[in-house]
């Protein structure tokens, strides 16, 4: 039996009536809390001598952190796209190579991978190309390691993005005489990348945080600099609170930008 119909006017009314209440409940208190923390830290950095010293020593590491993240992510996009395309290739050899790469990386802890890639794989590969091990800077090794690790995660994002595009798109492109490659480049990928851009943004933020692992390679990025500062001054709270502040300020900014972009994307689809 059909239930009584809910008239549109009723549902609109009830929503209007509840709106202030909903807005109150949905108010981003978490964001307020985070901004209070960031505000207090800013105040302390400006006023507290010890914290200010820590900040002045650590802050220049931000250049290296950003360099690692941007370089690593740029390369990871290339690795991820290639591996993602490999995963769905008709060629069984290519497909299996891509799957091996993805599963291998996913099965080993990130920290272990960074150490192994930087101290074992990169030297071995550079030696086989006749390049002196010492010519490959530790920053470059960190970038390569981050790129190889994140490439495996991005590969799955790319694969899912490509597979989410309806088969009819490829068929329409092929029926117009485009090659598979042209169809992929001009029809499938632009749509897939748009769909997965929020996921890519999330992984960019994740990589910004994981760039701190490069400190185990003694790369002087933010984390390594605060370890050095803590080690030499024994001011542990100051040293570590400053990088918590710096990482959080960067990631919260990025994730707010991402939310805004996502919302715009959804509006654009309507």
């Amino acid at each position: 039996m059909a239930g009584p119909e809910v008239t549109p006017s009723f549902s609109t009314d009830s929503r209007n009536r509840n709106e202030p209440f909903v807005a109150w409940r949905e108010f981003p208190w978490w964001l307020v809390a985070i901004f209070i923390f960031l505000g207090v830290m800013t105040y302390l950095i400006l006023t507290d001598e010890e914290i200010n010293q820590a900040f002045v020593f650590i802050f220049p590491g931000i250049t290296t952190t950003l360099y690692l993240t941007l370089g690593g992510f740029g390369l990871a996009l290339v690795f991820g796209l290639l591996a993602g395309l490999g995963r769905i290739s008709q060629n069984r050899l290519i497909r299996n190579i891509a799957i091996t790469y993805v599963e291998f990386i996913r099965g080993v802890p990130t920290l272990v991978l960074i150490l192994t890639l930087a101290f074992v794989i990169v030297p071995a590969v550079s030696a086989s190309f006749g390049i002196d091990n010492r010519d490959v800077s530790i920053e470059l090794r960190a970038i390569l390691a981050l790129a190889i690790i994140y490439g495996a995660f991005l590969a799955e994002i790319f694969r899912a993005g490509i597979e989410s595009i309806s088969k009819g798109q490829m068929e329409a492109a092929r029926s117009l005489g485009m090659t598979t490659r042209q169809a992929m480049q001009y029809i499938i990928l632009p749509q897939a990348i748009r769909n997965i851009s929020p996921a890519l943004g999330n992984d960019f933020i994740a990589m910004l945080k994981d760039s701190s692992l490069a400190s185990v390679l003694a790369v002087r990025e933010l984390t390594q600099r605060s370890r050095l500062h803590a080690g030499s001054t024994f001011r542990f709270p100051e040293a570590y609170l400053v990088i918590v502040f710096l990482y959080l300020a960067m990631t919260i900014t990025l994730s707010l930008l991402l939310r805004w972009y996502e919302r715009r994307l959804r509006v654009g689809e309507r």
Partner: peptide, 10 residues
Amino acid sequence: GMVFQQFNLF
């Protein structure tokens, strides 16, 4: 040329 039931415009 081919025209599909679901249009398949880009």
